[in-house]
Computed example of a mutant assay.
Amino acid sequence: MRWLDVRRHSLTKKGETRGRGSHLSAEGVALARLIGSGCGPYGRVVTSTSPRAVETAIAMGFAVDDVVEMPSGYVDGEIAKHAQWGWTEPYGRLAEIVRQGRAAAGVAGSHRAIWAGTLGEVAEGGAALLVGHGGAIELALVACLPDEAHALWGAPFAHGDGVRLGFADGRFVSVEFRRAPKLPG
């Protein structure tokens, strides 16, 4: 078995300080450091091309091996931006959308391929880290584990939230949610 830890990027700057690619805020760096202190080591680290994802992995204490263009989980006509936060059972709803086989299913499949590909260079028993974005992570999760009890998975991914997926025989076989800790103070 190999393991894939997927994390949503950490907290970003807001307002005029946000900047292009929305870089991490001081609180975001502190949160990423706290998360990183309790995970790893990783045989491979992959992030989206967005600065906030790269900065999250580095602040966690891990060198980035590759950056990958990752499509948005918000798909015109199917999933509005941040819609998952208003749904009672977000993962169940996303699973229904994926089963319809339209554009969102294609996006979910793209992420599943990126996630599985990230593990391609990881030794048996090893782990990889992937840092991505809210909206896309939730969509990919239901595609990776289509037969799970999605209604029990809870809330969408807040900044720093993660999941550990088991991967065996070319498919994802288990999921363990890892919610971000609260910063002290």
Score class of each variant (00 low, 15 high):
Ala105Tyr: 14
Ala105Thr: 13
Ala105Pro: 12
Gly106Tyr: 12
Gly106Met: 08
Val107Thr: 08
Val107Gln: 08
Val107Leu: 15
Gly109Asn: 14
His111Phe: 13
Arg112Gly: 04
Arg112His: 07
Arg112Leu: 09
Arg112Met: 07
Arg112Phe: 00
Ala113Gly: 13
Ile114Gly: 07
Ile114Cys: 03
Ile114Val: 15
Trp115Pro: 04
Trp115Thr: 05
Trp115Arg: 15
Gly117Ala: 00
Gly117Arg: 01
Thr118Arg: 01
Thr118Pro: 01
Leu119His: 06
Leu119Lys: 01
Leu119Tyr: 07
Leu119Gly: 09
Gly120Lys: 06
Gly120Asp: 07
Val122Ile: 15
Ala123Gly: 05
Glu124Arg: 07
Glu124Cys: 02
Glu124Met: 10
Gly126Tyr: 04
Ala127Phe: 09
Ala128Met: 13
Val131Thr: 13
Val131Glu: 02
Gly132Arg: 12
His133Thr: 07
His133Asp: 08
His133Tyr: 11
Gly134Tyr: 04
Ala136Val: 09
Ala136Met: 04
Ile137Asn: 05
Leu139Ser: 06
Ala140Leu: 14
Ala140Lys: 12
Ala140Thr: 13
Leu141Asn: 05
Leu141Met: 14
Leu141Gly: 00
Val142Asn: 08
Val142Ala: 03
Val142Arg: 05
Val142Gln: 10
Cys144Pro: 09
Cys144Gly: 08
Pro146Leu: 06
Pro146Gly: 05
